[in-house]
Design a protein around this nucleic acid. Structure first.
Lengths: 228, 228
DNA sequence: GTTAATTTCAGAACGCGTTCGAAAACTCGG
DNA sequence: CCGAGTTTTCGAACGCGTTCTGAAATTAAC
């Protein structure tokens, strides 16, 4: 490590590949084939370089996906959020919901451990809005985190079920007759058996928002009570 | 395909491997090394057979994991659940929570698409209790599904955050100074920046249950309102 | 006893994400 | 102009889940 304080601005073999180029190609492949079918090797082939080259511009495949998500997150418009704390929480959460609904594969990626620490400032802005709203409402900071976490998983769950349903139809891969469950014991599980294929019925956005309101109301009240 | 109607009860090379043996070995490896480190090849080597042999007793690796989960699910005790519908929903959900907390890797596996269709009767019994409670309370069947789904993701999210925190400590892998977030812009995201490492603070079980009550109250009220 | 059918077993191989090590292509100090 | 240092590129290889193909071991039929 010689000459630490003398920054050499240019040295080394000139790159033929750029991170932006990789991300653009990845976006194209995902749009065409779906993100499950994106492989590092195919992505490299698309660009016309060796597979291992990509690892100089991107840490992992997961890192690549997070870069894409953050790129998308930059474009999500933050509408003017209401001043009133409770409404601000709900509006921010609904914005998160709509962004994920438009890009369902992001929700699948974002179930990864520790995802949130890897988001960029812009997507985190909506998280900030939820936390700030909860604190303004009177929650402790710790409880505000809890509020966000509950909302987050509530929202992601909704998105996952929807994209799962859209992909495979009403029945899951393991079932046959259109019913969601395979062989269910109607004696022991009468309600589930009676549901048939209605398990995968989609909740419309209004239902999501109504449920969100209920959840937020409960969480905020709990947060204020905890402070007292 | 000759002699379709004449069932030959025994034919073919006698098996040296049984599904039960595979599951037992898998359980051992998971207990010793964690489920992330379980590989088909190591599992086969542990038993002393070729890797491909396992595929005659199990569909996939995912199938293997679900078999283990269902085995565990059989052992989860279903306590006497309260008669009153709302309390029944809460008690069943709390039982699910406690079972997952005792076996956190199950929660990670169960975020897979369509998971629930692959659960056995015994674990589904708790799902049944939630749905039945919601219907008894006055929700429509469709909304009862929604109630369960919301509770489910709320619960799984809590478990995931806990096991993530337990595994990597308070900070995620991408952070350094003990803070959960990496380089956060304190100007744009003041509340998140102020949180520091408190993002990963665990909610104790009581907080979980309180939040659950809030969620269930809201969801049930919404379900009844939807019916009217 | 021979042959056919059937079931289990396992080696070879595929594509995957990823790592290692060496070669290529540049800048810069001398 | 020449090596030293540095950065990029890429072929080879590893372990993974999984599939394919064929061999081994048994029962059933004749």
């Amino acid at each position: 490590m010689p000459q630490v304080n003398a920054p050499r601005l240019k040295a080394g073999r000139p790159p033929t590949t750029s991170r932006a180029q990789i991300l653009a190609a990845a976006r194209g492949l995902i749009d065409r084939n779906g993100w499950e079918r994106l492989t590092i090797r195919k992505l490299a082939a698309e660009i016309g370089v060796g597979a291992t080259t990509l690892y100089h511009h991107v840490q992992d495949k997961e890192d690549l996906l997070f870069l894409l998500i953050n790129e998308y997150g930059e474009q999500v418009s933050h509408p003017g959020l209401p001043e009133e704390p409770r409404e601000r929480v709900i509006a921010a959460a609904a914005t998160i919901h709509d962004a994920l609904a438009a890009w369902p594969w992001a929700a699948e990626v974002l179930t990864t451990d520790g995802f949130i620490a890897r988001l960029g400032d812009s997507p985190l802005g909506l998280v900030e809005a939820v936390v700030a709203g909860a604190i303004d409402y009177g929650c402790t900071p710790d409880h505000a985190v809890y509020v966000f976490r509950s909302i987050w998983y509530y929202t992601v769950g909704e998105i996952l079920v929807r994209s799962h349903t859209a992909r495979r139809g009403n029945g899951a891969a393991t079932t046959h007759h259109g019913a969601f469950f395979g062989n269910i014991d109607a004696e022991k599980l009468p309600h589930l058996a009676a549901l048939g294929d209605r398990w995968a019925v989609l909740a419309p956005r209004d239902t999501y928002v109504d449920g969100l309101r209920a959840l937020v109301d409960g969480l905020l009240a709990q947060g204020v009570a905890a402070r007292a």
